[in-house]
Design a protein around this nucleic acid. Structure first.
Lengths: 337, 337
DNA sequence: TTGTAGGCGTTATCAG
DNA sequence: CTGATAACGCCTACAA
């Protein structure tokens, strides 16, 4: 490991001079600066992040809170995609990403302690139980945080436009002549509440009534429960002509159930997903869905957080909404004639 | 931030005493030790990992090399699942996970430099171009590494049992009476080579001949290319009765093509996937496939790496094979009668 | 059993 | 423009 000291010796200058030269301080002559930089490269010098962090109190390391207890964490394309874009964006700015977890080793640290221990300059929080006291503690601490798909008071957050997304889907379906629209939604999270409300509100605005039996609760990313609810809907006397699913993946369960009943998607019944994952566009018929812009969400979260880290004084917490787009697909039939 | 010094003051003992007490050194009286620990907790003391790392030259941080350029990185369930189990296992041992990348910020670091800069105690390498000189440099460095699905000389690696997996699939298909078996494989990587060879060898052992036209190259995780190859196979005069796909996901393309041709999977043509992802078991008919034990692979890699980090002298590099299991599913018809 | 002191590699202040 | 020098928080001989 070559250090500043090694370079200072090799160049016959003081340690301080080397440090300044390498950090581009203005009070070093051009000549010596380049000479030092050259030598540094020659010796394969790498700054020691631990030493630097110790001194500057900044780690250039951002924490990532991602809990995967349910299968809907990292294995969900929405989240793995967000994770990926966070990583990319963060690296662009010279930061690294470290996972934050409860209890590292035998010592039971909570999230805040863990982040502190690793000296994270900031933390991005996604896909967790936002009611968890440990999460709340972290969010209320002095560490800058950005949350995804959930808003905390006085903290910046990046949201997918769930209200707009569902509204667009409903309006699209409506434009195809559907008036009997059912929604199978996921378990009751903040996101679900938004989607459900948007569904009901849009229907109301469009002057179509939604019988209670048209609204069913399933589980995100779980085809089985959506299959069950699909069956329930199909057993109604007055069947819906279109079903909105909690997400693209759980639609698979719905599809299986419909197949079983001898119903052909599109011809006999129209459906929509939500998310716009890769899968939804390679299946046949390709799914009508709303693509969440997970890539941009990750980037946005990373950018905001870093901005907050680097300019703590002039930053106001913001709630950023990232809009997605309707993907027409081929699962909603025009029945308006 | 409370430090050792703060505690030492609060307890009226020296800094050294506090350090020793907290690290469980034996040369501190029980009484003072517990007293110090209590005070530490009371003050919310957290060790400063940077300072500790600086001193001990160990960061308790392991690097993760995961390149996602192709869509088959993090978005592939196989890898996201491995990532997840690595994270879990590593945390069990008191380590954290940091992503390693090329070029952080504007300074163009390579992998080795990045790992060095962050003082990673070791690095796990997966899903990268193993021919990349930067990867090779890292593997040949003094930093302990474990690779997944690729073997480097004198380094430990964790492999999925690709040879066994394909062999089992072929034998299963054979047992169902199939003699005309085609394989669509992924692009030519080391893993692909193994699978292909195992396919040919098993067929040879079983005394069935594989015409050249029965072996097609597609792209992993890309339904389109598998659809194309499926069509090519179906255009043969002497069609196969069973097709092995590169992976579960790309089978979707095959399924679409078969549907288009009016062929029913199982009834008219048998198929197998590879991987055993969640999707494969919720689709109907559920896919006959070989489940790679990604969870165990991640755990194994993490365990070996940490073992190597903590006992550098007595460790011999090993090639560990993790076996998966055949999932029967419902896409291979018994045609033996 | 406890305390003192030096140093890990950096950065930052201040004096030359 | 350059160079001593003092921290940052922690560990660890070694001394008391």
């Amino acid at each position: 490991m070559t250090t500043l000291k090694d370079i200072s010796k090799a160049c016959n200058v003081s340690l301080a001079t080397v440090s300044k030269a390498l950090n581009g301080q203005p009070d070093i002559s051009e000549a010596t600066a380049t000479m030092i930089k050259l030598k540094a490269k020659e010796l394969g010098y790498l700054p020691n992040s631990a030493a630097r962090s110790l001194k500057t109190n900044k780690s250039h390391n951002i924490g990532l809170l991602f809990v995967d207890k349910t299968a809907s964490g990292l294995n969900h394309e929405y989240f793995s995609s967000i994770l990926n874009s966070i990583k990319d964006e963060v690296e662009l700015h010279g930061y690294d990403v470290t996972f934050i977890s409860k209890g590292i080793g035998n010592s039971a640290m909570n999230y805040y302690e863990h982040a502190k221990y690793r000296h994270c300059d900031g933390v991005i929080i996604a896909s967790v139980d936002f009611k968890d006291p440990d999460v709340i503690q972290l969010v209320e601490s002095e560490i800058p945080t950005v949350t995804l798909d959930y808003v905390f008071n006085n903290r910046t957050s990046v949201l997918s436009d769930n209200i707009e997304g569902v509204s667009q889907l409903v309006r699209y379906v409506y434009s195809k002549g559907h008036r009997k629209i059912a929604m199978i939604h996921g378990e009751m999270t903040a996101v679900t509440r938004k989607r459900l409300t948007s569904f009901l509100k849009t229907c109301y605005d469009l002057n179509i009534t939604v019988p209670d039996e048209y609204v069913k609760e399933a589980i995100y990313h779980d085809p089985k429960s959506s299959a069950l609810m699909t069956r329930a809907l199909m057993e109604l006397d007055d069947r819906p002509t279109c079903i909105l699913y909690p997400d693209d993946f759980s639609y698979i369960g719905g599809k299986n159930e419909l197949d079983k009943q001898g119903l052909t998607v599109y011809e006999d019944i129209s459906v929509c997903g939500y998310d716009g994952i890769y899968l939804s566009q390679v299946m046949r018929p390709s799914l009508t869905t709303y693509r969440q812009n997970s890539d941009q969400m990750g980037r946005e979260a990373a950018k905001r957080l870093i901005n907050e880290i680097e300019h703590p004084k002039i930053i106001l917490p913001e709630v950023v909404s990232v809009s997605g787009e309707l993907i027409e697909g081929n699962t909603v039939k025009d029945i308006s004639s």
